[in-house]
Nucleic acid binder design. Structure first.
Lengths: 115, 115
DNA sequence: CTTTTATCTCAACCTCTCTTGAGTTATTGA
DNA sequence: TCAATAACTCAAGAGAGGTTGAGATAAAAG
């Protein structure tokens, strides 16, 4: 991820509704959610929701696919991890005090290298 | 870091000049840089620079102290690591595909737990 | 083929953000 | 005290961003 992509992603995430949508979609997993279900969860009108989803998709943070009448949106994991990596890579050069506390924030089970 | 602080930090970083200032200050280390030196590096007028520095300070990403005629700005490491931790903690719940690639982005030497 | 459901598109409006330029405050040195 | 340096503050204007409501498009059901 380069600076321009990072700026797009940061801008997309710096809005309350959009940050919540992304968090919702990440926890929803790869299956994602239909636009209507996201709208219900957000309490947003269809046009407002569409505006934010389009914004997030343009920033590469979510992707969509039509499924019957619905359009399902799902998080793009690589974009999120890419943004975090950008912040760590370009921001903590030689300064472990930036990245070390962040490293322990991940609650996920570590991926075993080889079993 | 809660959602509101994260939104402030994301908004502050989603602007080209401000993102560059933060990166500059992180690499400058705890000593920071005088406003004038930052302005020279950014090619920004004093009022424009002051606007962005004030914005960054309000978001908690940088701090300032007067030193003679100059005002030195330095990065607030906890805020940066807090933001990264927020993105990992609240975004990758149970989805290691978000955080695992990010974990390897840190180029800093790992801090030894005990020696 | 018409209706219903799900979602998007567009224009209008308001607000917030960023930049500029002029003027102000704070600190130091002559 | 006066001038020079360093940085901030303020008002004005251009532009981007977010919300709303009306209307359009796409897919499925009757």
């Amino acid at each position: 991820m380069d600076e321009m992509q990072a700026l797009d992603a940061l801008g997309a995430l710096s809005q309350e509704t959009r940050l919540r949508i992304v968090r919702l979609l990440v926890t929803a997993g790869p299956a994602g959610m239909a636009a209507g279900a996201i709208g219900d969860a957000m309490g947003a009108t269809s046009s407002r929701l569409s505006f934010h989803l389009t914004h997030l998709e343009a920033a590469g943070l979510v992707q969509s696919r039509r499924e019957g009448r619905s359009i399902r949106y799902s998080a793009v994991y690589e974009a999120l991890s890419g943004l975090i990596a950008f912040l760590m890579r370009d921001c903590c050069q030689g300064h472990p005090e930036v990245c070390t506390p962040a490293l322990s924030a991940c609650a996920c089970p570590p991926v075993e290298p080889a079993e």
